[in-house]
Every structure is written in structure tokens, then in C-alpha cells.
Nucleic acid binder design. Structure first.
Lengths: 136, 136
DNA sequence: AGCACACACGCAACAATGTTGCATTAAAAA
DNA sequence: TTTTTAATGCAACATTGTTGCGTGTGTGCT
């Protein structure tokens, strides 16, 4: 999947900036923070990036990757997200050492016994620890 | 458990400010953000609160309650945390409507099959949805 | 009780992160 | 190509978090 294809299928205008951002996501198989992305685009405009990420999330290209760190991160949706709802029920692994966040698609969050009256809309499962590189 | 007892058992100095903060935690059975606490103390000093919360977390009185919102929250430890390690493997429910976060002690996070080399140190399970009050 | 020491507090200054408004520019439609 | 619509870039501002330092307060000691 190329940046342009992604923009087309999600009915978004094709701009240089958006293509750059998507290209970065496609080249990294993990969740990225605002800073991660900004530092990889020369002469990136902070504000435009904030708005680009918000738009991408609203249109279902990316979703928030909740990893338990204080930083908000985003990851490319695996294709089953759309405009109406994110199906972000998958798990994330956050490395406490290098700060990187990886998507763990294999693990399914458990069912819930919430108190009566509570309605669950999405579930997040976070594993915190050390990645293969930092564990040694 | 009273504020003073908590400070004593954790070997912390008893100050007015700390007692106020602990009193707020004891009166609310849920995770609180910096803002939540600040707004309940008249003439609270932002910086002192940051340092108080950090100290409380280091000494094992409170722990970070990761709820998937962009805000960092803290909740009182249930007694099994200490100076050396937080046993924060329990689940949190975050209401998307009112923003409140509740601890769900009954649910146990599942085991993991992480990629080889990855070491898990803690697990967080977050349920996002609507609480009993907001669901109607 | 009084004293000394360590620590907590409160303030200032700064750094990082996120938001809003508006004029300009670029993409899509006519 | 022209018109229309949306994205961009900049300024200004709001919020959140950090660091340094002088002052005040709690605690242990004599």
C-alpha cells in the first residue's frame, strides 16, 4: 500500500505533506509519536502535523496507540478501521528503555465483567517492559 | 486508613499539603488527574503538587493509572505496592463522556505471547466506554 | 524545650506540548 | 482555465511539565 493509495481510498486530498507523513508510517512498523515524525521531515510545521494526524485519525488511516507512556503515539491502521469506528482492540508493547512501541496483533484482550451500567466501547492492552534489543 | 497513617507507614514527613492531597484521594474512589487535585485545594501550588505526586509514587502510596486518555492520572495503591515495585497489573475503566477513571480490581490481564527476546515487566488493561451515569 | 539539619515549600524562569485564528497557497471541481 | 474548497504556514496563545534557589517547617538530637 502506497501513500497515494491510502489517501485515495480514504477520500483525502493528495498533498506533499500528507504523502511524506504516510511514507514515514509505512517505513516504520511501529507506533510513532508526534516528535518521531516531526524529526524525520525537514522543515516540518508542527501545527500542520497536529492537524494532519488528527485528520488521519478521523478518517481511519491511523489510530492512537496507547502504550502507557506519557506520550501520545499513532500507528497505521491494519485496514479494518474506517471513518465510523476504529477497531483498536489490539495490544501494544512499550519498551521502557528505548521508548518504542510495537503492535502485538496476536494477543486478544479478555472479556470483561464491568460494574452494572458500564458500557465498554474499546479495550486496550499494554505490555510494558524491554524489547529484544534493550533486554540485553 | 488516614492521611497521617499513610505518611507514617511510608516514612514520609507529615505536612499540611501532603495530608490535604491524601485526604482528596481517600475521599474519591477513583483515579485523579493533576488538575482534579489542584482544583480541590485552595491556593495549591502547581509545582509542589507535581513533586508531591512524584514522591508519593516513588514511595508507593499512589500509582499511575493509565486510562488511555491524554491525561496522566494517579490512584491510591491498594496496599500491596511498596518502595521497590508497583504491582499495578489491574485494570482501569475510562469513561469517554465524563473522563473519570475507575479501578477494576476483578479483571486479570491475560498472559502473553510476546515476540522472542521481549521481557514484560507490567501489564495494563484499559476499558474505554461509558460509566453507569453517562451511559443513559 | 531548644537547636541543628534535612527536607518540603513557594516562587521565578523556562521548556515542551497542544490549540485557535487568519491570510496564503495548492488541489479538486466546474 | 477559472472557480471553489480545503490544506498549509505563521503568529499568538493556552496548557502542562521541569529546574534552580532562597525560605520555611518537620524531625531527631542534646
Amino acid at each position: 500500500m502506497s501513500p497515494i493509495e491510502l489517501l485515495n481510498t480514504h477520500h483525502l486530498r493528495k498533498t506533499q505533506f500528507r504523502e511524506k507523513v504516510l511514507d514515514i508510517f509505512l517505513r516504520h512498523d511501529r507506533a510513532l509519536s508526534h516528535r518521531d515524525i516531526e524529526s524525520q521531515i525537514s522543515e516540518a510545521d508542527r501545527i500542520t502535523l497536529y492537524r494532519t494526524l488528527r485528520t488521519f485519525e478521523e478518517k481511519g488511516l491511523i489510530h492512537k496507540a496507547i502504550d502507557g507512556s506519557d506520550k501520545l503515539k499513532y500507528a497505521l491502521c491494519a485496514g479494518h478501521c474506517d471513518v465510523h469506528a476504529h477497531h483498536d482492540h489490539h495490544a501494544h508493547f512499550h519498551c521502557a528503555s528505548c521508548g518504542q512501541t510495537f503492535c502485538i496483533d496476536e494477543v486478544q484482550p479478555p472479556g470483561i465483567q464491568t460494574p452494572p451500567g458500564f458500557v465498554v466501547e474499546s479495550t486496550h492492552l499494554i505490555f510494558n517492559g524491554r524489547c529484544a534489543l534493550c533486554a540485553n
